[in-house]
Amino acid sequence: MSADLRLILFDVDGTLVDSQAHIVASMTRAFEALGAEAPSRAETLSIVGLSLPVAVAQLAPAHSVADQTALVAGYKEAYMQIRSEQGSAQSSPFYPHARAVLDELAAVDHYLLGVATGKSRRGLDALIAGHGLERMFLTQQVADHHPSKPHPAMIEAALSEMAVAPAQAVMIGDTTFDMEMARSAGVAAIAVDWGYHDTEKLAPLADHVVHDFRDLPGVIETIWETKT
């Protein structure tokens, strides 16, 4: 008898790849192009994971809708330019051991891997191509088609697409948005401490906090063992 299918969903920025320099530089360029004071690094990283229009609205609440629209466009342009100049491997490198763990999890027959990210479809496609992940993620939920995190729509769509129950899924992320999204969707939440939100804020929302990518497979299995 084959094992039940299990879905493992990953956030991308701050969880799989360290894109903070790329994100901060892109946001800084966007604000400077508008002639506005750029947010601090901490302010920019605090909104990573949100859909871009929502993130910009939080960073520039006093600006007009037209200005916020211009900032979104400016960010996208700057992000693509930096990626073109540097390539994904340099602008958004994997965290230590991330690729090896992805390969390990993908090799388990009853595991299904996916992503739920605030990136656009174009942004995710470029990152996947840049890192050679074309066959890694069976479900890919992006900001273009869903409300911003922490709304549970991304996870709910992934569960439906993969025909997996919430009890047989986990969400792995580095922000409170990821943890709240997982809670709202009724799936287990694993926080990583190498990303962009403080561990102190993540821990109360997470089922587990992981400090090393290599610990993930064991933590995931432990979660499912307690549910069966």
Rank of each mutant, 00 (worst) to 15 (best):
L5T: 06
L7T: 07
L9H: 02
D13L: 09
T15K: 01
T15R: 01
T15A: 06
H22Q: 10
I23V: 10
V24S: 10
A25N: 10
A25H: 07
M27A: 07
T28R: 12
T28C: 07
T28Y: 05
A33Y: 00
A36G: 04
A36M: 13
S40D: 12
A42K: 15
S46V: 07
V48C: 05
G49H: 02
G49A: 07
L50H: 01
L50W: 01
P53N: 09
V54R: 11
V54G: 06
A55T: 12
A55W: 01
V56D: 01
A57Q: 10
A57F: 04
Q58A: 08
L59M: 14
A60P: 04
A60V: 09
Q68K: 11
T69Y: 03
L71V: 07
L71F: 04
A73P: 03
Y75K: 04
Y75Q: 04
M80I: 05
I82C: 04
R83C: 07
Q86W: 05
S88D: 04
F94D: 01
Y95H: 09
H97I: 00
E104L: 06
E104N: 05
L105F: 12
L105K: 06
A106S: 11
A107T: 06
Y111H: 15
Y111G: 02
Y111V: 10
G114H: 02
V115N: 00
V115I: 15
A116G: 12
G123L: 02
L124C: 08
L124H: 01
A126D: 06
G130H: 05
H131V: 11
H131E: 04
Q141N: 09
V142D: 01
A143N: 06
A143P: 02
D144I: 14
H145D: 15
H151M: 06
H151E: 13
M154R: 04
I155F: 00
E156K: 12
S160G: 14
E161Q: 10
E161V: 06
A163H: 12
A165N: 11
P166E: 05
Q168I: 01
Q168G: 08
M171P: 05
G173W: 00
D174Y: 11
D178G: 08
M179E: 02
M179H: 08
M179Q: 12
M179L: 15
A182G: 14
A182P: 00
R183Y: 04
V187A: 02
V187R: 01
A189N: 02
V192K: 03
D193Y: 08
T199D: 00
E200C: 09
K201E: 11
D212Q: 10
D212G: 03
F213C: 08
R214M: 05
R214F: 03
L216P: 03
L216C: 13
G218R: 06
V219I: 15
E221R: 15
E221N: 15
E221H: 15
I223A: 13
W224S: 13
T228S: 14
